[in-house]
Every structure is written in C-alpha cells, then in structure tokens.
C-alpha cells in the first residue's frame, strides 16, 4: 500500500516535471559586479514588459566558457569587452558587443584604524590588500593599473592577495582577512553593503574604463523579440538611472 502511494506520487512528480512552462523566460548571464544593479533593472524591465527573467551570476570568464559550450543564455552582460568580442568572433552572437556602462573602482575597508586611500596602502597595519586576479577579472586588471601608474606595485607586491572574482574580493575584505582591497563601486553602493566599512572612489584617470558590454547570443534567432527588448531597455533612461545609482557612468 505504502509502495503504491509512493509510486503514484512519483508518477505525479514526473508528470508535473514534464509539463512545459508556458511563460516566456529570458535567461540573462551577468558578470558578478553587476549583480546588485541588475536585479533592480530586471525588476523594472519585468514590470514594464511582463517578460520574466532568470539571472545567472558568475565571472565573465566562466560565463563566456559556458556560452562557448552551448549554455542556454539569451543575453550576456560581461564586465569587459574582450570576452563578448571573442564570442562574436566565434560567431556565437548576433552582433558585436556594445558598451552600456563603465564601472567605477573603489578602495574598501572594514577596519576602524584604516582610512581608505592610496597612501594608506603602505601603512604597516595593512598586512594584506585584496584585489581580483588581474589575469581573469576586469576589476583586478584596473586595480593593477592603478598600482602600476602610481609606482606602488613593487613596494606592495608582498601584500597583494588575489581573489578569483570580484565576489571573492568582497569576501576577503568583508571578513577582514584582508584589511583593505579594491572592489567595484556598485558593491559598496548596494543595499546589502551600504554603510558597512569605509570606501573611497579612485580617480578614473589611473585605469582604463571597466567597460560593461552586452551581447545577444545566437540562440535568439528563432524566438520572439524579448532579448532585443531587454537590449533596448538597458540603454533606456530608466535603466540608466538605476546604473548611475550604483556608481556606473555612461559614455556621452
């Protein structure tokens, strides 16, 4: 008896699982630095168009590799132009990537003793400086550029610890294992982290802009225009306001 009930529920589960979902869903792959701003943008987009969106958050490199291997993403928001350009060269996107925002870089600390600034990095209380790995993370590349442009890299190299992504950089800084670190401005402006610790914006003249690129994947060709509508929305005034709130700037 018990067994029969079990098999009936199993059958029911199988039937339910197989039911095709009727609503349109857009799958958007997003670079980790954009995760806070994007949820607000997607909310505004869904309110306006009634198109539901799934967010896949990861590092730009990982998402690129996944798209290359056929991951079912419709839209890709990368934290640089190099990776989406590579997808375009491989013929996996409908058009070349377009810059929709530039990310800002900040120094962030949780320590009471440290005032975040470039001069404080040489302070002996600062034992570890966290940054994203410059080989793989766009904000890491910008961080190294700042250090090199100010001739600080060689003096500080012993203190540098590399995180695999901007999210892990935040982890190192927020747990205090690194006394200070370089992260995206959108992180310290996010509702979750606002007011935690102290941060300072770094002058954009010390690093190349951290360009945020958008591409639509080839997967879209046989479906409705919802990916295109999202593409248009991210360049709209409404999305722009949200992006600015999170510390992104736009090219004029």
């Amino acid at each position: 008896m018990k067994f029969r009930r079990f098999s009936v529920s199993l059958l029911l589960l199988a039937v339910l699982a197989c039911r095709p979902s009727t609503e349109v869903k857009l799958t958007i792959a997003v670079a980790a630095n954009m995760q806070y701003a994007i949820s607000e943008i997607v909310e505004a987009f869904t309110n306006k168009t009634e198109i539901q969106c799934n967010l896949i958050i990861g590092s730009s490199g990982k998402l690129t590799a996944q798209i290359k291997e056929g991951a079912p993403y419709d839209v890709f928001l990368s934290a640089n132009m190099k990776y989406p350009m590579e997808l375009f060269d491989d013929g996996l996107t409908t058009a070349p990537p377009k810059v929709y925002a530039n990310g800002g870089l900040v120094l962030w600390t949780q320590s009471d003793q440290i005032v975040p600034s470039l001069t404080s990095l040489t302070n002996k209380d600062v034992k570890h400086i966290a940054l994203a790995n410059p080989e793989i993370a766009p904000y890491g590349r910008a961080s190294i550029q700042v250090l090199r442009n100010l001739d600080l890299h060689d003096t500080l190299v012993e203190k540098l610890v590399y995180a695999e992504s901007i999210s892990q950089t935040n982890q190192f800084i927020s747990t205090g294992v690194a006394q200070i670190g370089f992260t995206a401005k959108s992180v310290v402006l996010s509702p979750d982290l606002k007011g935690k610790g102290k941060w300072k914006t770094l002058d954009p003249k010390y690093y190349d802009p951290v360009q945020q690129g958008i591409v639509l994947t080839r997967r879209n060709e046989n479906r409705d225009n919802s990916p295109q509508r999202f593409f248009d929305f991210i360049f709209s005034e409404e999305a722009r306001k949200i992006l600015e709130k999170y510390g992104y700037s736009m090219d004029e």
């Binding site: 590092s59 490199g61 990982k62 690129t64 590799a65 990776y83 590579e86 790995n133 080989e135 793989i136 590399y162 695999e164």
Partner: peptide
Amino acid sequence: KVASIAIYEEVEAL
C-alpha cells in the same frame, strides 16, 4: 597558488 588553482585560473582566462 597551487596547481589546481592555476588550472582554474587558466580556464577562467580561456
């Protein structure tokens, strides 16, 4: 930076 980490980073960097 051990080998498993180096591999992960090389994959990330494509």
